[in-house]
């Protein structure tokens, strides 16, 4: 019998009363739903959570939650989040952005956030397109995807976020499909609970500029094996999958970065003494 303590919070407690501007059918609606469900499951009070984003469709998400939010400049959400977490280790910091924001303009921060391994969760809603600017190819777009900016396609191999995350030192690596609300919820719960830097790529279709992505619903499939703590195994697995393998792929054991601001401070008057001659 599944009778348990009633949770202190419901998913609705993490949702704001603002209606998203996302196109109906957008995968980001599912991500919002999964994230709020996950937060309810985690039970952290909304005021103890910060949702940080950059620029793009998915980066509109903070205001749609009932948490503290920061809608920053393009590509720098991880830096905002890192500063916040170091300054306020008591908060749950979730950085949520998109493939253009996170992997293109914010690419360098992605590498170093993985490497730094601060205890925070990075969720990238990957729709393989810049939606807010009307459909340009992003780092994860297929090489032959035709667009006004790159007629006939870019001809470039897509960026592989999971491999990069793993190689750069992320401590938790997962892929999910937005439509799988249950699995995505559970993945976010585990990502937040896992110590260190957790990276979750959520395939989140763009109905407007990538209607072809409606096939993701049937293309995605669960990872047939359990998550590993061996980065080499995880890398082999990710490198050889078809990009639609969803599930938790890697749970690392690295110690999270531990530099942080304390709750209380000593009097800075002690600091002048070194200059006295």
């Amino acid at each position: 019998m599944n009778v348990q303590q009633q949770p202190a919070f419901k998913a609705g407690d993490y949702k704001s009363d603002i209606t998203p501007i996302w196109c109906p059918g957008c995968g980001d609606f599912h991500v919002l739903l999964s994230a709020t469900k996950a937060l309810a499951e985690l039970g952290t009070p909304p005021e103890k959570i910060a949702v940080i984003s950059g620029i793009g469709c998915s980066s509109r998400i903070p205001a749609y939650t009932n948490c503290y939010g920061f809608h920053g400049v393009h590509g720098r959400s991880l830096a905002l989040g890192a500063g916040l977490k170091v300054a306020r280790p008591d908060l749950t910091v979730m950085v949520m952005s998109g493939d253009g924001d996170g992997f293109s303009i914010g690419g360098n921060h992605f590498l170093h956030a993985c490497r730094r391994n601060i205890d925070m969760t990075y969720i990238v809603m990957d729709n393989r397109v810049y939606g807010m600017t009307k459909g340009q190819p992003s780092p994860t777009t297929e090489p032959d995807w035709d667009s006004a900016l790159s007629p006939g396609g870019t001809g470039l191999s897509p960026f592989h976020p999971l491999v990069i995350a793993l190689a750069s030192g992320a401590n938790f690596v997962a892929r999910s499909f937005s439509g799988n609300i249950k699995a995505t919820t559970q993945t976010i719960v585990e990502a937040v609970r896992h110590p260190g830097f957790s990276f979750v790529e959520i395939l989140s279709p763009c109905v407007t500029f990538r209607p072809d992505e409606s096939s993701w619903k049937t293309q995605t499939h669960s990872a047939s094996v359990e998550a590993t703590d061996d980065p080499a195994r995880a890398a082999r697995r990710i490198m050889t999958d078809d990009g639609f393998n969803v599930g938790i792929l890697y749970r690392g054991k690295r110690k999270p970065y531990d530099i942080h601001v304390e709750d209380t401070f000593k009097d800075p008057a002690i600091l002048g003494e070194e200059f006295a001659v």
Binding site: A50, I52, Y68, F70, G72, V73, R76, L78, A79, L80, G81, A82, G83, L84, K85, V86, A87, R88, L91, N108, H109, H112, V261
Partner: peptide, 12 residues
């Protein structure tokens, strides 16, 4: 990153 980190911390 450094200025955004400072902004993030100050937000906190």
């Amino acid at each position: 990153a450094s200025i955004n980190m400072a902004i993030g911390a100050s937000f906190g």
